[in-house]
Design a protein around this nucleic acid. Sequence first.
DNA 1: GTAAAGTCTATATCTACTATAGAGTCAAGT
DNA 2: ACTTGACTCTATAGTAGATATAGACTTTAC
Lengths: 132, 132
Amino acid sequence: MVEMKIGLLANKSDCSVQTIRFYEKQGLLKQPMRSASNYREYDDGALKQLTFIRQCRSLGISINEIKQLIVLREQPDKSCESVNQMVKQHIKEVSKRLDELTHLQTVLTDIAASCSAGHSIGECGVLKKLDI
Amino acid sequence: MVEMKIGLLANKSDCSVQTIRFYEKQGLLKQPMRSASNYREYDDGALKQLTFIRQCRSLGISINEIKQLIVLREQPDKSCESVNQMVKQHIKEVSKRLDELTHLQTVLTDIAASCSAGHSIGECGVLKKLDI
DNA sequence: GTAAAGTCTATATCTACTATAGAGTCAAGT
DNA sequence: ACTTGACTCTATAGTAGATATAGACTTTAC
């Protein structure tokens, strides 16, 4: 397929129409050609670019970081050190978040276990736990 | 201590001054007394309330849910079923997020491992992985 | 008396979208 | 030819949970 409108691109990329327009406004997707009636016309290059963006987003890479990656990709001779750093940084952050959530899970489970038999707010073991 | 201004309350509750004002505007903290010069004057009850709020927030309970909890706490005779449900729901969500992050961690680690020796953008294994 | 630190309100900013209003366009069916 | 529904357009507002800023006022310390 050579050309497509925004709805089809959205389908192909598993991404909403609004999100595509949003990425364009953010400068992640370049402005596409327009039809006579001002409809956006995309080619397969745009689909590739959008797939890259979605892939990065699913990995927790921020829009600003994706912007940097897009610039970097166009300078094949430069060092890729910053790309590696970015990924390593994300691994660190995900590790940290995993630790936090694991701890949170034990606390929540403990709280849930404290549910008293009475089933009234006044004797609610859960609320008492929340109150420290 | 019987009375304190917002800065001291912020210190005691490990919470910024702006956040306290934000919670007040959201209806989580009731409007405190005001001094002659219009400064907020808090008592220990406010500190307890704020501590409860922060405890809930650290457990991932949303501001709207905290509002519900605050209302519930004032009706000791009602059933605490909804409180239990809320906690159980959070446990589910945290589980789901843990699974997602665990998977993300393996993907990121795999990507990081693909860093090629060349150290240039053009032959960057990391970028190639990101490009699918 | 003065300077620094604290407080006040109101408003803007952040992230990554999502939703809505109101208008225009296009294709299919009758 | 006409209408209906689906699609697209722009611009704007809303979401969550804060955080930051501007400009004015008050209090505290020296």
